[in-house]
Amino acid sequence: MRVSVPSLPDALLRPAADAVANTSITAAEATTRIADFLTRGKGSTAVITGAGVSVDSGIRAYRGKGGRYLNPNYKCVAIYHELMEDTARGVAFRCAWLRSFLGYPPVRDAQPNPTHYALAALQHGHVTSDLITQNVDGLHAKAVERFWPKSRIEEQILELHGTLHSVRCSHGHVISREAFQEKLGMANPGWKEYLKNLEQTGDQPRTNPDGDVVLPEGTRYDEFVVPECPKCLRDKQHNTMLKPEVVFFGESISQGVKERSFEVISDSKQLLVVGTTLATFSAFRLVKQAVEQRKPVLLLNEGASRADNLLGIEHVRILTSAVMRDVVRKVLGVTAESDIFPELLNSGIVKLPPEDPDDGLPTPPRL
C-alpha cells in the first residue's frame, strides 16, 4: 500500500509565487478587506485554520518556508496501516513513538500567539461562529481556556485532525498524553535522560506540527519500548497498540467529525480560511463545499494554496500576524475596549522557529 504525503505541485506553486511577487498589499489595505468581509458575515462566518497560524508559536508549518513537505526526500513519521498493524513491521511503530516522545514536549509547551488570541476574540464577540482547525497542537483551545467553559470550547472549536494531547488504544480507550508520556519515559530510561538533556540545554528538536521529529541516520528504534494500555490491563488484556489521537496518513477522519465539519460550513453564511495551503483534502473539500453553496470565501495566507484556482475566492496574501489584531479592533470598534477583549488583544507570544534548516540533534544514546 502506498500513501502519498499531501503537498502542492510545482505547477501550482510557481504561478502562485509569481502572483505574490507581482501583487503587493499593505497591512492597512489587508485589514480593511478582511474587516469588511467579516462585517458582511453578520456573525455567521465559519473559520478554518492551518499550520501557518501556529508558526509564531514556534511550530513549523509543513508546507511553508522550509516546510518538511516541500522536501521530496522527507519521510513522514508513519502511515496508519504501518502504525497499527501488529506485524514484524513493528519497528515503524516504535520509530513513530520514539520520534513522538521527543517531539511532544515542544508542542505541549507551545503558547498561543497573537493570531490565536485575535481569532478567539472574534469568536468571543460573535463576529465568527465555529472554528475548524487542522492543527493538533491545541493552541486555539489554550487561548480561551481561561475564559470559556470546556463545553463551549468543545462546541465551537472542532479539531479536524484530532489532538496530540491524548492517546487512544486499538480497543478505543483514551488516555492522557501527559500520563502516557511519563510511562514512555519510565519504560525507556535512556531516552528519558536524553530528552531531559535536550530540555536543559535548549537543543529543541526540529518539531513538525504533528509532534514528529527527525532523528539522525543510524538511530536504533528496535529496542524502544511502548507500554501497554493501562485500561486494557485493568481488563486483564495485553495491548501495546496505541497511537496519539491524531489522524495519520492513510487513516480516515471519524464519521462524526466529518459530518460536523460539513454542518459548520452549511450553517454559516461565509467562510474565512487562515494560514493553510489546503493541501489536505479534508480541509480543501470544506472550501469546495462553501464555494458550491455559493458562499463568500476569503483566504488569508501568505503563500500558495490548493484553492488558488477555485473561482469565487477572495485572496489576501499577507502574514496573519501583520493584520489580525487590527482586524479585530476595526470590526469590534469601541467594544474592543471592554469585557475580556483588551486582555485577548494584548496576549500572545511570538517565538519563531529557528531559521536553521538542519535537523541536527545531539547524538542519540547508545542503549
Rank of each mutant, 00 (worst) to 15 (best):
V3Q: 12
S4Q: 12
V5R: 15
P9F: 00
A11E: 15
A17M: 12
D18H: 06
A19K: 14
T23M: 02
T23S: 07
S24L: 10
I25N: 03
A27K: 15
A28R: 15
I34A: 11
A35P: 08
L38P: 04
R40G: 12
G41F: 07
K42W: 01
S44I: 05
I48Y: 01
I48L: 14
T49A: 05
T49F: 00
V53R: 07
S54Q: 07
V55Y: 01
D56T: 04
R60S: 12
A61F: 04
A61P: 11
R63C: 11
K65W: 00
Y69R: 11
N71E: 13
M84S: 09
D86W: 01
V91T: 15
R99W: 03
S100Y: 14
L102D: 03
L102P: 14
G103A: 05
P106N: 14
R108A: 06
N113P: 05
A120E: 11
A121V: 10
G125S: 12
G125V: 08
D130M: 06
Q134W: 03
V136S: 02
K142E: 08
V144E: 04
W148L: 14
W148P: 07
P149Y: 05
K150F: 00
S151P: 09
E154G: 07
L158F: 03
L160M: 15
G162T: 14
T163E: 05
S166I: 09
V167S: 10
R168L: 03
C169E: 02
E178W: 03
F180I: 13
F180C: 06
Q181T: 09
Q181M: 07
E182T: 11
K183C: 05
W191M: 10
Y194L: 08
E199R: 15
N208E: 15
V213D: 02
P216I: 03
E217K: 02
E217M: 02
F224A: 10
L233P: 00
D235T: 12
K236A: 14
M241N: 11
K243E: 01
F248W: 15
G250N: 12
G250V: 14
I253V: 15
V257C: 01
S261P: 15
I265D: 10
S268Y: 04
V273I: 08
T277M: 01
F281H: 12
A283K: 09
V291E: 03
E292A: 08
L299C: 13
L300M: 11
E302F: 14
D308A: 09
D308W: 01
G312K: 11
V327L: 07
R329C: 10
V331N: 10
V334D: 14
V334S: 14
T335F: 00
I340D: 12
I340G: 02
P342Y: 04
P342H: 05
P342D: 10
K351H: 09
L352V: 13
D358W: 00
L361F: 03
P362G: 04
T363L: 06
P364L: 00
P364N: 00
P365S: 00
R366I: 13
